[in-house]
């Protein structure tokens, strides 16, 4: 069979870095090929025909030409630009975090269509959801599940025994929930409330729409964020920079002393 030199695919742009005089190297998430790296020529010039169609967090229909090492994007048309996400700093910082998570958990050229669908659903939900902290936890658990890193939530991750109610701890090293007896052999195991366990069990099997209907209070939000943070740090073996950016944004909110508004792009009306 002759090798196909030109192919079409849909993709979401995850990452972009400058290359050469006016080119860019893009990291894309596609439904059929998985994560993919491709170059796009002359895209940093203001008159580039492709530039606006290939910004980060844009879903585009692409035409690519096979290259020796990297493929080159020869055509692009934006399908979805997520303006609700990009016009609000809180939502944008969360979307950047999700993008970082997808990029970190997906290996290159390993097709995983459910990850693509989940990421797309997540970005759409982020645009319309007012309280998106729980959406982040849902996305973390689902992305971990689809990439094979879902923590053990039903039984003790160490001895596989049944967990008695209120008798469980969280141990990223063991890979999830552990019983008090096993936690002794696992340093760094932290307390996990029954409510937090119930929420993450629910989120690990829920759909986007049902996950965003759950309402939890402030302390439980913080507990969930903290246990997922320790688990992700252990699984990825690093701290994600986008998590630090999330924190900077909430500090900036406290500094400015203002409540987040829907459109705060700093653009005067009419521009």
């Amino acid at each position: 069979m002759p090798r196909v030199r030109i192919y079409n695919t849909e993709a979401i742009v995850l990452r972009a870095s400058p290359l050469g005089e006016a080119d860019r190297l893009l990291t894309l998430l596609t439904p059929g090929i998985g994560k993919l790296q491709a170059t796009v020529r002359g895209v940093r010039k203001t008159t580039s025909k492709l530039g606006g169609h290939l910004d980060i967090l844009t879903r585009s229909s692409l035409t690519l030409a096979k290259g020796r090492s990297l493929d080159t994007i020869t055509g692009a048309e934006a399908q979805e630009t997520f303006p609700l996400v990009k016009g609000n700093l809180e939502k944008l910082s969360r979307a950047i975090y999700l993008t970082d998570l997808v990029d970190s958990l997906c290996p290159l050229e390993a097709p995983n269509p459910p990850v693509y669908t989940l990421f797309l659903d997540g970005l759409r939900a982020l645009g319309i959801e007012a309280d998106s902290d729980l959406l982040l936890r849902y996305m973390e658990l689902q992305l971990l599940s689809l990439s094979g890193f879902l923590p053990e939530l039903q039984r003790c991750a160490e001895c596989h025994g049944q967990l008695a109610p209120s008798q469980h701890l969280w141990s990223p090293i063991a890979g999830g929930v552990v019983c008090p007896a096993c936690s002794a052999s696992r340093p760094g195991a932290t307390n996990l409330s029954l409510n937090a366990l119930k929420v993450i069990r629910f989120l690990s099997t829920a759909t986007v729409s049902s996950a965003t209907m759950v309402r939890v209070n402030g302390p439980l939000h913080r507990e969930l964020a903290a246990i997922m943070d320790t688990y992700l740090r252990y699984t990825l073996e690093r701290e994600m920079r986008s998590a630090a950016f999330l924190r900077s944004v909430s500090h900036a909110r406290a500094y400015a002393g203002s409540r987040p508004s829907e459109n705060e792009s700093g653009v005067p009306a009419g521009h």
Partner: peptide, 18 residues
């Protein structure tokens, strides 16, 4: 005028607007 530039602009806008 790309995602990173917009994120930077929005972040600084929040800090300097007061």
């Amino acid at each position: 005028p790309n995602l990173e530039g917009e994120a930077t602009a929005m972040y600084i806008q929040r800090l300097v607007s007061p």
